[in-house]
């Protein structure tokens, strides 16, 4: 078989046909995978919420609120508290956390959603039990959410003060968001 001649008609026809078929293939793939993709994203959120807030049967309600010029996304779980997504700048890039604040204003637990910290140093914020456990049950009314170097009550991760500061700031921002939500009395949904 010889390749078709490169006449204008052939070229246009060929490109159009290829594009149509490819568009159809991608369209079908999109339709087929849409549900599993949403389900996977949902599962990740649900798992994170379950980690940062006390157990509850209530369905999380999504919402967003503007505090200090930044939009925060949060999930409200009736009877348990708020799971707030809070992002700050770490050492290598953005550090995004989900912070669970219980109804009484104490931090229940935190989890890292995404980060780009240095492996083996700042990246320990996802694994260093001594660092992470400090936030569990942290009461911002009694203690200060900052590392000891900055006059707070938190031990920083060894050799990763910048990451620790970013982490503390993210949690402290989330607590501010919580107070704003409480003050407002109701959510802007």
């Amino acid at each position: 078989m010889m390749a078709a001649a490169s006449t204008l008609k052939n070229m246009v026809l060929c490109l159009t046909l290829v594009c149509l078929i490819c568009a159809a293939v991608v369209g079908v793939a999109y339709a087929v995978t849409k549900e599993p993709i949403d389900a996977a994203a949902q599962a990740k959120t649900t798992a994170s919420i379950a980690r940062v807030l006390p157990e509850s049967d209530a369905t999380p309600q999504e919402g967003s609120v503007r505090v200090g010029g930044t939009d925060y996304k949060y999930y409200k779980v009736d009877g348990a508290g708020y799971a707030i997504i809070s992002t700050t700048s770490g050492f290598g890039g953005l550090l995004s956390l989900m912070v669970g604040v219980a109804e009484d204003g104490t931090v229940h637990n935190t989890t890292v959603l995404s980060h780009s910290e240095t492996p083996g140093l700042g990246a320990k914020c996802t694994t260093d039990g001594n660092f992470i456990s400090q936030f569990q049950g942290f009461n911002p009314a009694e203690k200060t959410l900052a590392v000891k170097k900055d006059g707070g009550d938190l031990d920083a991760i060894t050799a990763s003060t910048i990451t620790s500061r970013a982490y503390a700031l993210a949690v402290s921002n989330a607590v501010d968001v919580f107070h704003q939500l409480k003050q407002g009395g109701q959510d802007d949904e």
Binding site: M2, A3, A4, A5, S6, T7, M11, C14, V18
Partner: peptide
């Protein structure tokens, strides 16, 4: 599969 049918320039 499609190579034999594709005009060379595109």
């Amino acid at each position: 599969l499609i190579a034999p049918k594709v005009p060379d320039k595109v």
